[in-house]
Every structure is written in C-alpha cells, then in structure tokens.
C-alpha cells in the first residue's frame, strides 16, 4: 500500500500542503432534445492535498454533476479539472467515488464488491483477498464478507461502498451524500467512523452533503453553493480539532450562519 508517513489524528487543516486539484472555469450544460439546462457555470476552485472539503447546496443545484465532472465520468462543456497538473478527462482509479445510491454490484458478495478494483488492476488473488479483508475490518464488516449485498442495511451498504473505493488506494475520494439515506443516529455513527477511517489515511476527500451539521463536523473547508447554475457563494475554513463538539458555541454559531445563508438560496435540512 502506498501510504505516506501517517498524518494520523493531526488536524487536517493548517499543515503545509500544496494544491492538488485545480478546477478551472468549469461549466456544464446538459442538452436533452431541445432543452438546455445550465447546471454549472464558471466554477473555479483549488483543493489542497489531503484536505476534506465539503460542498453544501440546495437540492438539484448540480453537486452530483460536479463530482462526476471531477471523476471524468461526464465531459465538461467548458473549463477543465486538473489533478497534480494532469487533465482529468477520463475516469481512473486515482479518483475513487462513493455514489449517492451506493452502486454496489448485487451479483457479487460483499467481499467481491470490495475486491472489484483490485481484480481489474490484476492484483493476485491472495493479495486481493488480504487487502479486501483489511478494509472490511476498517469499516467493521469483516463478519459480512460473504453476505449478499441485498441482505445488508443501508448503513452497511454505505460502508461496503466506502471500503470498495478506499481499497484501491485512490489519491482523491469523491463522496456523494454518502450518509443521505441514513437515519440520524446511524448517520452520526457513520460520521464518527469516517473521521476515524480518515485519520488513518491521507487521501483528499471531496464530500457532498445536504447537512450543514455534517459538513461542519467533518470538513477542513465547507464550500457553500448557490442554486442553479451552481457557483460558489462562500468558502468557510474550519481549523478546529477533531473530534468536534456539535454542541459547542462556535459550532452552533457557524451552523446558524451557514444555514441562514443557504436559506436565501433554498430550504435546507439541519
């Protein structure tokens, strides 16, 4: 595994890290028959290596579209995305993605889902199994390695999807509302688990969420977006230690401020 010297537990923000991802004047217009939808327009942003940056914005503002552009799954209408100076025009294993609806393969067992990326990379069977095992343990699903996907709860599916994306060791992980479908309690547990998982890895995380609370809890930076066409409304730096206390004054204040800003765009859930 390519793992840099562990940055474990250190606050992600504030370290001297270079820019890893450059989003340069990105624009996307969907054309369907005679209708055009301009979803993203003149979007520029620099993302630092190893940071967790989250995007909050009203529903349908184009968050998933932005992630798919970064992943290279859809072509931009204008502008471009670069990782370490390379143009991201095609999808690749350097950018892992956790999909909004998990997108697990139902014909594969949990273990086989996690092994998929290693399998297509030609990793030998024994090695593959061992690495999948390690990540299943990381997300606490080692007991379910041989279960079918359809037998899992939403939260478990989510963790399989996270393990599947992490196991190939991507530089960047794109997470599309990974906890959106979970109840509040499971969601909190998952957020804590993600914080733990992230402490042991050095990946850059681009995280999309509807929940301002979740964004503040997890992120080094929160990007607040406008509604369609999506632009950046504000970027909030959060240089606090982890784990964070949701009931602290500063947490509550910040949440209130971001929420009121989003309310001007649309109604958001807390």
């Amino acid at each position: 595994m390519k793992r840099a010297a562990p940055v474990a537990k250190a606050p992600r923000f504030g370290e001297e890290r270079g820019v890893q991802i450059v989003i340069d004047g990105l624009g996307k217009t969907y054309r369907r028959e005679d209708r055009e939808t301009e979803v993203i327009e003149g979007f520029s942003l620099e993302i630092r290596r190893g940071e967790l940056i989250s995007f909050v914005g009203p529903s349908g503002c184009g968050k998933t579209t932005l992630l798919k552009l970064i992943a290279g799954l859809i072509p931009p209408s204008s502008g471009a995305v670069y990782i370490d100076g390379r143009l991201c025009a095609e999808p690749g294993a350097d950018r892992g993605m956790v999909f909004q609806d998990f997108a697990l393969f139902p014909w594969r067992s949990v273990r086989k889902n996690v092994e998929f990326g290693l399998e297509v990379a030609g990793v030998p069977r024994a090695d593959r199994r061992e690495r999948a095992e390690r990540y299943l343990r990381l997300v606490g699903l080692e007991k379910f390695a041989d279960s079918r996907v359809s037998e899992l709860s939403g939260g478990m599916k989510q963790r399989v999807a996270i393990a599947r994306a992490l196991v190939v060791g991507p530089d960047v992980i794109l997470m599309d509302e990974p906890f959106g479908a979970l109840d509040a309690q499971t969601r909190n547990i998952m957020q804590n688990q993600l914080t733990d998982i992230l402490a042991s890895t050095d990946q850059t995380i681009i995280f999309i969420t509807h929940s301002v609370d979740e964004a503040i809890f997890l992120s080094d930076r929160v990007v607040v977006q406008t509604k369609r066409p999506m632009r950046i409304k504000e970027i909030v730096e959060i240089p606090w230690e982890r784990p964070r206390d949701r009931s602290s004054m500063e947490f509550v204040e910040l949440r209130k401020r971001i929420l009121s800003e989003l309310e001007k765009e649309n109604v958001m859930d807390v």
């Binding site: 992943a71 799954l73 690749g92 294993a93 993605m97 297509v120 190939v168 794109l174």
Partner: peptide, 23 residues
C-alpha cells in the same frame, strides 16, 4: 451507476463488459 462505479475503480471497457454488463 454500475458502469460508472466500475470506471472509477479503474475498469477498462472490456472489463466493464465482462464484469458488469454480462452478469
């Protein structure tokens, strides 16, 4: 989303065909 997931995991078009489309 299945084919997209396979792409982000590094699968080639042929691998997508064999490991996603066929099953």
């Amino acid at each position: 989303n299945w084919t997209d997931a396979a792409k982000t995991l590094g699968a080639s078009p042929l691998q997508i065909f064999c490991k996603v489309v066929v099953p």
